[in-house]
Design a binder for these strands. Structure first.
Length: 846
RNA sequence: GCGGGCGUGGCGGAACUGGUAGACGCGCCGGACUUAGGAUCCGGUGGGGCGACCCGUGGAGGUUCGACUCCUCUCGCCCGCACCA
């Protein structure tokens, strides 16, 4: 890769025949990187003793829907900048890529086109891979993986079995979210406002036997370990905290005397126990049928339960609608005061939360208040501010102040509410009628899906042995080929009769395979581990190598995964840790969530017709320009607005850098490294060069503010352009000029690696991607003089160029002497003189 | 309702620690080169005023010599959760 010939081409000819041609340059360098396997990073041969600095830089893997979109470009470019930066700062960098390839879109496309989901997926992957490679990201393609590959999902199944054997994967009939459009169940996390996250259909509640992961067992650790995730965005932590929804409270047991049953409730307000004036069961509560059997309320209650079951989830959970319900004719006894209170059935109580039953305290709960008002039930205040101001006739009194006391509460009257809460819980525990407990909003993760294109659940259902794990040695359980994928409410795998019939692994008797497939979020909950050993076939991974690379040092992705993927992946890692399979408890040490790219004020989407295809931009301006623009648009975590004209800024900048650096390469000689000069324009340029190094380094490393880093590169180019004519012909000046050009190219490399490599070569360098990152020389960060701003009463009146290190009195004297300063101070009394060293002077006058 | 975030030129944004508001870029205006310009180069560009100056970071107060930055109140927008007892 010599460059001697190009450096001698006369400038006039060069500028005419060698206009910046990104297509040619980018193809050239991508070929070089591929041939040299420039970005492949093998695992250490001996991880136990290898102490080399390393960084695992990862962006969330794409769903291969066909085309790369702008969100991907922005996301992967940010990761690429960090990767290049760390590589050039001496780190071994793991920067892999893969495909989240199972899932409904490919299956639906296959149904439409009559093809096979596998074929659709493979075609999509080929397409998106080519588009990603065209972007020139420094990815270790030797580690590429696809979650729909049997060599991958074999280990997804293997991990499922580890959860199964630990009792963390179980099958249970329960009330689940059913999407009538996609004909499958959905996890709670995939239901947005009662609608299917993917297709938008109103979700129905159905009772079905489904597979769950017991993520609730990990609720406390998922919550408490967030303390260690210091650099995670606050909003992601908050969203996870809300989602887990831990509430401290008490379980209180209410007795039903006629049938002799006990019904526990969960409450966060045991202090209001004396205010319970009725009791409510969720319509699906198992005791409802027993309570009303043979009574005159039976028909009314069962009719209400049926009506509720027929309504959509969105409808049921609409908090603004009027409360409905029906009395059962039965009552329970309040354990604290032996009072009989009536039992109602109402859909405002959710069977999945707490115990599915509540004690209703209308005086101190908005929902109970609304119900009591509708049904004309007693509203009895039991917690009041000391001044007696809490009126509960119109709305519930729910405030929490330090100065509340209990009333109407027997032996607890007069106690402060917080004190009473503790005392009542103690009393309940001592009398065996309750205990302190914690409830969570988080539900177990429903992972089974009645669809084809996913990893089969590796379980066999045996009439004698029950649910039995497929032995590890028999993995993968391959997806059978079926002819019909159209969703019909049961898994298409059920039609593969031959495939289903297997001998029971335990007793050898005739048994049937599980036909549901796994939620694709299972696939993506461990892929970051598999990258370490992406091709290993005698195990899921090598623990020593995994522990060497992980946790991920910098994870980058969209905030839309704040709960789903990030919570699931955290859960998986904790389970794997407990099973001794990995040596860390959190997968992602640092998380960065990038903003979304909008166009015309809306999220880019096909349905809105405002999608800008990266391909089209690359074709016209080149990958470097597109990379630069997606970063230059704004701070990485903020949402950004795409404008078609905006790309021209970075594109012109690259064209201009190409011209100017090529000219300098041809007209000067020397090393493309930072150099020094003592005075004059050369010294100014040397300072500008070193300041740029400091700024770009800090912007990438500490702030992840790529937009200002690029702005700094633009400023350096402007400085070079301004200085070059006066430096040509001066030997010392030419060295500085060439060094400045080299530094510019070097700083630009993480953002625009193709043009940087091309220009670096033109300047006589080689393999810029592995050159050390430039270091700013402190001596050149400071000028000899500074512009001192002089204010009078806080308003800028003049400026003066002063020597650095000048004493306070001298600074004041110089400032005072300025004509415009005198105009504003003469004849007035100066009451105060403020001097901010090396910045400004402020005279306060009266 | 609860929680998180954001309001700066015509536009995207910069100002990181309280110290020159508007870096950098787009767009626009003027000029050069040109058969031509969606190319390139040069100059200008927050508002008002001939000017000295005045006004300006959603709004109103406050702290300070000095506030985009800190405090109080308020308006608007975005995101998340929401009948979770």
């Amino acid at each position: 890769m010599g460059s001697g010939t190009e450096a001698s081409v006369p400038v006039a000819i060069l500028s005419r025949m060698e206009r910046y041609d990104p297509q040619r340059i980018e193809a050239r360098w991508q070929a070089v990187w591929a041939a040299e396997r420039a970005f492949e990073t093998p695992n250490p041969t001996d991880p136990a003793t290898d102490t080399r600095p390393r960084s695992y830089v990862l962006e969330m893997l794409p769903y291969p829907s066909g085309d790369l979109h702008m969100g991907h470009v922005s996301n992967y470019t940010m990761g690429d900048v960090v990767s290049h930066f760390r590589r050039r700062n001496g780190h071994l960098v793991l920067h892999p890529m893969g495909y989240d390839a199972f899932g409904l879109p490919a299956e639906n496309a296959a149904i439409r086109s009559g093809g096979h989901p596998r074929a659709v997926t493979e075609a999509n992957i080929a397409r998106i891979r080519a588009q990603m490679q065209r972007m020139g990201w420094s990815i270790d393609w030797a580690r590429e993986l696809s979650t729909s590959d049997p060599a991958y999902y074999r280990w997804t199944q293997w991990i499922f079995l580890r959860l199964f054997e630990r009792g963390l994967a179980y099958k249970r009939a329960s009330l689940v979210n059913w999407c009538p459009q996609d004909q499958t169940v959905l996890a709670n996390e995939q239901v947005i406002d009662g609608h299917c996250e993917r297709c938008g259909s109103a979700v129905e509640a159905r009772t079905l036997a489904q597979w769950f992961f017991k993520i609730t067992d990990y609720a406390d650790r998922l919550l408490d370990d967030m303390e260690t995730l210091e650099s995670w965005p606050e909003r992601v932590l908050t969203m996870q905290r809300n989602w887990i929804g831990r509430s401290q409270g008490a379980e209180v047991v209410f007795g039903e005397p006629d049938l002799g049953v006990e019904i526990p409730v969960f409450t966060t307000r045991p202090d209001t126990l004396f205010g319970a004036t009725f009791f409510v069961l969720a319509p699906e509560h198992p005791i409802v049928a027993d309570l009303v059997r043979g009574t005159e309320q039976e028909d009314a209650v069962l009719a209400y339960v049926r009506r509720t079951a027929g309504r959509s989830v969105a409808d049921r959970t609409d908090a603004t609608k009027e409360k409905t319900g029906v009395g059962t004719g039965r009552y329970v006894v309040n354990p604290v005061n032996e009072e009989r209170i009536p039992i109602y059935v109402s859909d405002y109580v959710l069977v999945e939360y707490g115990t599915g039953a509540i004690m209703a305290v209308p005086a101190h709960d908005d929902r109970d208040h609304a119900f009591a008002t509708t049904f004309g039930l007693e509203i009895r205040p039991v917690v009041m501010p000391r001044d007696g101001s809490g009126d509960v006739s119109v709305e519930a009194y729910t405030a929490h102040t330090a100065d509340e006391v209990l009333v109407n509460s027997g032996q607890f009257n007069g106690l402060r509410a917080d004190e009473a809460l503790d005392r009542i819980v103690t009393w309940l525990a001592e009398s065996g009628r309750g205990r302190a407990t914690t409830a969570y909003r988080l539900r177990d993760w429903l992972l089974s899906r009645q669809r084809y294109w996913g990893a089969p659940i590796p379980i066999v259902d045996c009439p004698t042995c029950g649910l039995v794990a497929v032995p590890d040695a028999d993995l993968p359980v391959l997806l059978p080929d079926v002819t019909e994928y159209t969703p019909k409410g049961r898994s298409p795998l059920a039609a593969a009769e031959e495939w289903r019939r297997v001998p029971c692994p335990t007793c050898g008797g005739a048994a049937l395979r599980e036909t549901d497939t796994m939620d694709t979020f299972v696939d993506s909950s461990w892929y970051f581990i598999r990258y370490v050993d992406a091709t290993k076939d005698d195990g899921a991974w090598d623990r020593a190598a995994v522990d060497w690379w992980l946790p991920v040092d910098q994870y980058i992705g969209g905030v839309e995964h704040a709960i789903l993927h990030l919570l699931y992946a955290r859960f998986f890692v904790k389970v794997l840790f407990d099973a001794g399979l990995v040596g860390f408890e959190e997968p992602f040490a640092n998380l960065f969530t990038q903003g979304m790219i909008y166009k015309d004020g809306a999220k880019m989407s096909k349905s809105k017709g405002n999608v800008v295809a990266p391909d089209a931009i690359v074709e016209r301006y080149g990958a470097d320009a597109l990379r630069l623009y997606t970063l230059f648009m704004g701070p990485p975590d903020a949402d950004k607005e795409w404008t078609d004209t905006g790309v021209t800024g970075p594109a012109r900048f690259l064209g201009s850098a190409y011209r100017v650096v090529s000219e300098i390469a041809a007209k000067t000689a020397g090393e493309p490294r930072p150099a020094y000069a003592d005075a004059g324009p050369a010294a100014d340029l040397a300072r500008a060069t070193h300041r740029s190094i400091a700024r770009v380094t800090d912007d990438i490393d500490r702030r992840l503010h790529f937009n200002t880093a690029i702005a700094a590169c633009m400023e350096l180019l402007n400085a070079i352009e301004r200085a070059r004519e006066s430096l040509y012909g001066d030997p010392g000046g030419e060295i500085v000029l060439r060094a400045a050009a080299g530094t510019l190219v070097s700083l630009l490399q993480p953002f625009a690696p193709h043009i940087a490599e091309e220009l670096w070569q033109r300047l006589g360098g080689e393999r810029l991607w592995e050159q050390p990152w430039p270091v700013a020389d402190e001596r050149f960060l400071r000028a000899e003089t500074f512009e001192c701003v002089v204010q009078v009463n806080g308003k800028v009146r003049d400026r003066v160029q002063l020597r650095l290190g000048l004493e306070r009195d001298a600074v004041l004297a110089a400032a005072r002497a300025l004509p415009n300063v005198r105009a504003h101070t003469d004849g007035r009394e100066v009451v105060k003189e403020i001097v901010v060293p090396e910045r400004l002077v402020n005279f306060v006058v009266r």
